[in-house]
């Protein structure tokens, strides 16, 4: 059960579509029109720089057409780049993208209100990056 995205030159295998960054908004708009109105999640994972790849993040959006048709849009975002925001299409993306920005440090371009959501405003760093020490001190409370 996979959605046809051939006019975007994209192939969905097992609900998963790897989308280039510049096509994300178009694909998402198309999917929204196709009845994918349920926003499941937006996740990000940080991958530090290695020999072959620069410092980058994996971002995944999962959208659902009720009752059970899923599509997961997967993107690779270099750390120097920003991911286009989907907050204009699904309201849920607002808080989800803020959370991923707060914790993983992915910037979302075009987000209406990109502030920290979980941590205090003045927090240094993004804790879910792989290079962030788990027991980082925060004066004066720990």
């Amino acid at each position: 059960m996979s959605i046809d995205l051939s006019h975007f030159d994209l192939v969905a295998e097992n609900d998963i579509v790897v989308v280039p960054v510049d096509k994300l908004v178009d694909v998402a708009t198309y999917l929204r029109g196709q009845g994918f109105e349920y926003f499941v999640y937006c996740c990000a994972a940080h991958y530090p720089a290695s020999e072959s790849e620069p410092d980058r993040a994996l971002v995944e959006y999962r959208l659902r057409r009720l009752p059970a048709e899923d599509v997961a849009l997967r993107l690779w975002i270099p750390s120097s780049d920003a991911c286009p925001s989907l907050a204009g299409l699904w309201q849920a993306a607002d808080w989800q993208e803020r959370e991923q920005f707060d914790l993983v440090g992915v910037r979302f371009a075009g987000h209406p209100d990109l502030r920290r959501i979980m941590l205090p405003e003045d927090w240094p760093g993004h804790p879910l990056r792989r290079d962030y020490a788990i027991d980082t001190r925060h004066f004066p409370w720990r």
Binding site: E37, Y38, F39, V40, Y41, L66, W90, Q91, A92, Q96
Partner: peptide
């Protein structure tokens, strides 16, 4: 309902 779906 529409808002709820869009908010996940």
């Amino acid at each position: 309902a529409e808002l709820a779906l869009s908010l996940g």
